[in-house]
Nucleic acid binder design. Structure first.
Lengths: 113, 113
DNA sequence: CAGGTATATACCTATAGAGGTATATTCAAT
DNA sequence: ATTGAATATACCTCTATAGGTATATACCTG
């Protein structure tokens, strides 16, 4: 999970991933579209590949990179564990809990809020 | 989006977020549970707060931090745009497309694969 | 096999940011 | 007011990593 996040949390790699969403592309194409030097593209792609976010397929001298679904799925699954945070109106419930804790601890003293 | 990813892509911040999933906690509590020095915890929380991943509520000298749903939702929405990657068996479809492209370009020469 | 093209890699440099330590700040309690 | 506790911040140092340049490697074409 951390590897996935680290790979995505870099501006140019993020751009590469967004570009690859439109389909597989060779290194040179990525570079020219994103105005990145070739070695940099290759290095970023290496990181993305090690994070299992992309896959390569050789086509003659070209290397065609494409997104791999699996890592995105895992990221999605991880996020699901936080779903309640935005689905249930949890802020209000939390406030209620805080109120109760406050009363318990300070035995009925008035909340400062 | 990048701010969110950057904030999460750091081991200790990731741990803090995971811990906060179990509920709001004051700084000191986080530090002792994760074996982190207090200033480091405060600094990480600052980053998380600037990324709108957490919120603070003062309680006397304590600062109680909690996760904010909104950023997680946005991350989730962003990920949704990649859903097809893992839901439709896209690898096979991609291969088909590649085959067709190959034939077009090289006029019927056999695929190396 | 010679030349050209696409990509990977090695190396250097510069910088962002994480940890550590000391200190400032804020509030409660006495 | 003074003290102590919880937290924030300032400052320093150090390392990981991104960019840049040069070069190696692999493959197609003639």
């Amino acid at each position: 999970m951390l590897d996935t996040l680290t790979a995505l949390a870099e501006p140019n790699r993020y751009r590469i991933v967004e570009l690859l969403r439109s389909g597989p592309r060779p290194v040179g194409d990525i570079g020219s579209r994103l105005r990145l030097a070739q070695p940099q593209v290759s290095k970023h792609l290496r990181v993305l590949k090690e994070a299992r976010l992309v896959d390569v397929e050789p086509r003659a001298q070209h290397r065609v990179y494409r997104l791999r679904g699996e890592s995105f799925r895992q990221l999605h699954d991880w996020l699901e564990r936080y779903r309640r945070l935005w689905e249930e109106r949890f802020d209000e419930l939390d406030e209620l809990i805080e109120e109760l804790k406050d009363k318990e601890t300070h035995h009925g003293r008035k909340s400062r809020k």
